[in-house]
Design a protein around this nucleic acid. Structure first.
Lengths: 120, 120
DNA sequence: CCGGTATTCAACCAATCGATTGAATACCGA
DNA sequence: TCGGTATTCAATCGATTGGTTGAATACCGG
C-alpha cells in the first residue's frame, strides 16, 4: 500500500486519532497511552504500529520504555492532497457558476427563475 | 462509525482517491468513472457508495443515469482536524526547541555536543 | 409493450482489521 | 542472577472490506 493510503487509513480510527491528538501534547509510552482506552495493551501497541507504518509516529528506546513521538511532517502529505483537490473542486464550482450566470443573463433575463446552482 | 472516520477511510483507497480527483474536473456517471479501472461496474458502484456514505459525493438522477457529483464541503472536516493537530504539534516542537536551547545555554555551552532534537 | 442500457441488490469469497489471550523478549534494580 | 515491568510476537476469532457473478430494478426509445 502507498504511504498516502496508509496515512488516511491510520487516521480512519477514532482511537488512533485520539492517540495522535494526545501526542501533540507530549510524547508518551505505550502503557501511558493505553490508560484511557478499554482495550488491552497489546491492542494499543498494534494501533501504534499502524501509526508508525504510516510514518505518523516514531518509537525511540529509553531503557525498557518505548516513548512514542509524533512526526508532524507526514501531515503535509495529506494536506497537499486535500488542498489540491479541494481547490480544484472549488474552482470548478466557480466556473459552473459563471456558466450559469451567462445562461441566466442570455435567455432568462426576465423570467426571474431560480437555478439550483450553488450560491457563489 | 463517525463521519470523520468515514471520510478518512473513504480516502484510504487509491481508486477512490482517483475518482475524487477526476470528479474535481467534471461530474461523471458510474460507467464513465469505471472505464479506467480494471474492475467490474458493480465494484465501482460500491466504491461510490463508500464515498457517498462519507458525504464526499452525491448522486443525482438523470433518467437512468446517476451522475456523481463531488461535495467539496466535507473536505473541511478533515482540513480542520489536520490543521488543528498539525499546528499543536508544531507549537510543541517550538516549545521543545526553546527548552533545549535553554539547556544547551545553561550547561552545554562549551561541549559542542549534538542533541537529537529537531532543527528549528 | 419490449429491448437495450445503466445501475443497484444479493450472495458469496478471500484478505485484512481490531480485538483477544498467552508466550517471548528486553531491560532495570536489588 | 532473579523478579518485576514494559513491550512485542504469535495464534486465533469475528467483523469488515474489496472483489466477483448473477439477478433485479429503472428508464428511455421505438
Amino acid at each position: 500500500m502507498d504511504e498516502l493510503s496508509r496515512v488516511f487509513a491510520a487516521l480512519a480510527d477514532p482511537t488512533r486519532r485520539d492517540m495522535v491528538a494526545r501526542l501533540t501534547e507530549a510524547d508518551a509510552t505505550v502503557s501511558e497511552l493505553a490508560v484511557p482506552y478499554d482495550v488491552s495493551i497489546q491492542a494499543v501497541s498494534k494501533h501504534l504500529k499502524v501509526l508508525e507504518d504510516a510514518g505518523l509516529v516514531t518509537r525511540t528506546r529509553d531503557a525498557q520504555r518505548r516513548p512514542v513521538h509524533l512526526e508532524a511532517e507526514v501531515f503535509d502529505l495529506m494536506t497537499k492532497w486535500i488542498e489540491r483537490y479541494q481547490q480544484r473542486a472549488e474552482q470548478r464550482y466557480q466556473r459552473l457558476d459563471a456558466v450559469l450566470d451567462e445562461l441566466n443573463a442570455a435567455d432568462n433575463n426576465r423570467t426571474g427563475n431560480n437555478r439550483k446552482g450553488r450560491a457563489s
